[in-house]
Simulated scan of single mutants.
Amino acid sequence: MNDRTSGPERAEREEMARLLPAPAERDLPPGRHLHHKDTLMRLIDQDGDRATARPRLLRPAVLLPAAGLALGGVLLTTLAVTGQDSAPAPSAAGTGSAATAPRGAAVLLDRIASVASKSGEQKPNGDQFVYVRTLTAENEGMFDGPVKLTEPREREVWMTQESGPVTDEGLIHQDGSYIPITVGVPDGEKPVGYPAGLSRPTYTWLASLPTDPDALLRRLATEITTDQDARDTPAEDRDPDRDAFDTIGELLRETVMPPRTASALYRAAARIPGVTEDPDAVDAAGRHGIGVARDDTRAGWRTAWIFDPTTLEYLGERSYLIRDTSMGRKGTLINRSAVLERAVVDALRERPSAGKPSTTT
């Protein structure tokens, strides 16, 4: 296992190791399974037999625990970034320690929630697909080494809106290739599809979530802890606040969101401790916006959702290091994305037309 700590943190860790019995070796900063199962399953099947991909592929690189390694072996991760080498250093405000987000972030999220509740609604039926076009760049470096960024590239996804369970979830188009999003099936086992839910958030499932922020946080916590990845993570390695923030961010990224649900998610985020403002965040398309951010102090990075400063419309996401790690120096970008278009379409590979409703940012 590679040690990502340095300086005082390393000295403290070595002293603890000397005084305490050696812990069971782990290969992952805690609680990260939920964000990396999707990438792992895609890469397993790129080996040969099956084309398995999951839609959420924009998380920073970490090592996979032994339980995850049993699923498929090597994990390489995709990171979304721009061609820039670094991001502004985190603000002095740091991570809040109150029971909810600091007042500035809470006020901003309340404004964003109000705008989201009044946005136009695109309501797909079960025979249609949610289409989302984004701009990303990827890390081609080793998962435990310095970030090596590609040029920004376009990515399209089509996600079925069937309630499920389904084994054929949709399609990804990237780098000139179409990659089916299918559920991997071990040899000799019966296919078991994914129902609509946290791992496959259809419009209908999103609309079924509670709109009371506290009830919504409790529902998400239940969904997270019943997810297979969470079950594979020891309780002592979990961070409910981090998981809630990351899960909301994932739900915002490649979905068409019911307005009431979007509003509730933003109001719920305002109740997560440690959420702050990131005053000038830039997405993968170069658009400047205002960020809603939270630090993962254990992993050493900050993740920010980016919103248009005038319309408060969601633009994308970025992550950058808040301290020196094996991935790079403090301020290094490790994740950036930009949502360019969302729509409801009738078939795989169909793109929004002038005669059909779509949202272009």
Rank of each mutant, 00 (worst) to 15 (best):
T5Q: 01
R18N: 05
L20T: 08
P21V: 12
P21I: 10
A22R: 13
E25R: 13
G31Y: 07
H36R: 06
K37E: 12
T39I: 15
R42L: 14
A61D: 12
A67P: 00
G72N: 06
V74N: 01
L79M: 11
A80G: 15
Q84K: 11
A87T: 06
A92K: 09
T95S: 11
G96P: 01
A101R: 02
P102S: 02
P102K: 02
R103W: 06
A105E: 02
R111E: 13
R111I: 03
R111F: 08
Q122A: 14
K123M: 08
D127P: 03
Q128T: 10
V130M: 05
E138Q: 12
P146S: 10
L149I: 14
T150F: 08
T150G: 01
T160G: 13
E162M: 09
P165Q: 09
L171R: 04
H173N: 07
Q174H: 05
T182Q: 12
K190S: 12
G193H: 05
S199R: 14
T202M: 03
T202Q: 00
T204L: 05
L209M: 08
T211K: 13
L216F: 07
L217D: 02
R219Q: 14
T222H: 12
I224K: 01
T226R: 08
P234Q: 01
A235W: 07
D237K: 05
D237M: 14
D239P: 03
R242F: 14
A244S: 11
A244E: 02
A244Y: 00
F245V: 03
G249K: 03
R253C: 01
T255Y: 02
T261N: 03
A268K: 06
R271S: 05
T276P: 00
D278C: 11
P279K: 08
A281H: 04
R287K: 12
G289W: 12
I290Q: 02
R294S: 03
W301V: 09
T303C: 02
T303E: 08
T311Q: 02
E313D: 13
E313L: 11
Y314A: 07
S319G: 09
R323S: 07
D324N: 15
S326V: 15
R329S: 14
G331Y: 11
T332K: 04
R336D: 10
R336S: 15
A338N: 04
V339E: 02
E341L: 14
R342W: 01
A343E: 01
A343D: 01
R349K: 13
T359I: 15
T359A: 10
